[in-house]
């Protein structure tokens, strides 16, 4: 690169290109960030003042009151607890399940490798569809249980493939010496493979955690009648729905679930809830960026 410096003598069209490109990127960054800033500003603004309108990127009358208000919503607290629980349990179990299967698939000598591999990959193309799945959950008596948040989402073909392709690239010698020392297959997986798979496991953990945290549909369809099993996303959905529908539309038949307290919650409070549902994931992802970028590419190449 260095010896080409004199080639870098920037011509006018080249510089124009760069300037336009920077402007373009600036616009994109603004479009990406503004909505979040706006939501944050409104959530930090006094709720009666918000009604006057005109809050854009920063609050006019700063207050943390809205966050204090949402602490009093019982269903939100329950929802938050359930969301945290399902995210933690779902991620831990999902990681163990996916990595265990992935390890057996990375073992070239495993007899049933082909069979297991096909069984898992086919799920990417096949799905029973909404209603049969619903009926199955009903028959398994998983409706109105916490388990419905964990069980159906335990293994994802995509995640297994990503972990496996990482394991495929590990040096064989690692396992060989352990095998000679008499370690069994599970010990090798647990003590040797898992620790060196940290980068890919971090990626998958992020994927599963994001999916679990953001999921609202299973609450909506399976657990909507049981208030103690509600999740944060579902509560937010009800609150946002109730205002958007009452603003112009009238309730949809299937969606008529919002209760009275939700209906009257002012905009600032709604935005505070939105912030609460976003923040946990948004704090984590920048630190895992270099891992998940690698993970994404690995999975795509396969």
């Amino acid at each position: 690169m260095m010896k080409n410096m004199k080639l870098d003598r920037v011509t006018l069209p080249e510089r124009m290109f760069d300037i336009c490109n920077y402007i373009f990127m600036g616009v994109i960054v603004t479009i990406m960030l503004y909505p979040f800033l706006n939501v944050l500003a409104i959530s930090l603004n006094d709720s009666t003042d918000t009604v006057r309108g005109g809050i854009y990127a920063w609050p006019r009358e700063f207050t943390l009151n809205n966050y204090a208000v949402i602490m009093q919503y019982d269903t939100l607290i329950t929802g938050f607890m359930n969301s945290v629980l399902r995210t933690v349990i779902g991620t831990v179990l999902g990681l163990i399940a996916c990595s265990m299967v992935a390890y057996t698939l990375s073992r070239q000598d495993f007899q049933a490798k082909k069979f297991v591999s096909i069984a898992i990959v086919l799920t990417m193309f096949f799905s029973g569809g909404l209603i049969p799945t619903y009926m199955l959950m009903r028959d398994l008596e998983l409706i109105n249980t916490f388990a419905v948040y964990i069980f159906p989402l335990l293994i994802s073909a995509w995640n297994v493939i990503i972990i496996r392709s990482f394991m495929d690239n590990l040096p064989v010698a690692l396992q060989e010496s352990a095998k000679i020392d008499g370690a069994n297959d599970f010990t090798i997986y647990w003590k040797i493979i898992l620790p060196i798979c940290k980068p890919v496991l971090a990626t998958i953990a992020l994927f599963i955690a994001v999916m679990q945290w953001n999921m609202w549909f299973d609450t909506y369809i399976y657990n909507s009648t049981n208030e103690s099993l509600t999740t944060l996303q579902y509560e937010l959905m009800k609150i946002l729905e109730s205002t958007s529908t009452s603003a112009g539309a009238g309730m949809d038949s299937v969606r008529g679930t919002a209760d009275q307290t939700n209906r009257v919650s002012p905009e600032s409070v709604r935005m505070a809830i939105t912030i609460v549902t976003m923040v946990p994931i948004l704090i984590v992802y920048p630190f895992l960026q270099k891992y998940f970028v690698k993970g994404m590419t690995l999975g795509a190449v396969k």
Binding site: Y103, T104, F126, S127, G128, L140
Partner: peptide, 17 residues
């Protein structure tokens, strides 16, 4: 380490079919 999960997949992914 793998067959229980295959059974799992069978129940949750193929049974609905």
């Amino acid at each position: 380490m793998s067959i229980p999960f295959v059974v799992w997949i069978f129940v949750f992914n193929y049974l609905p079919v």
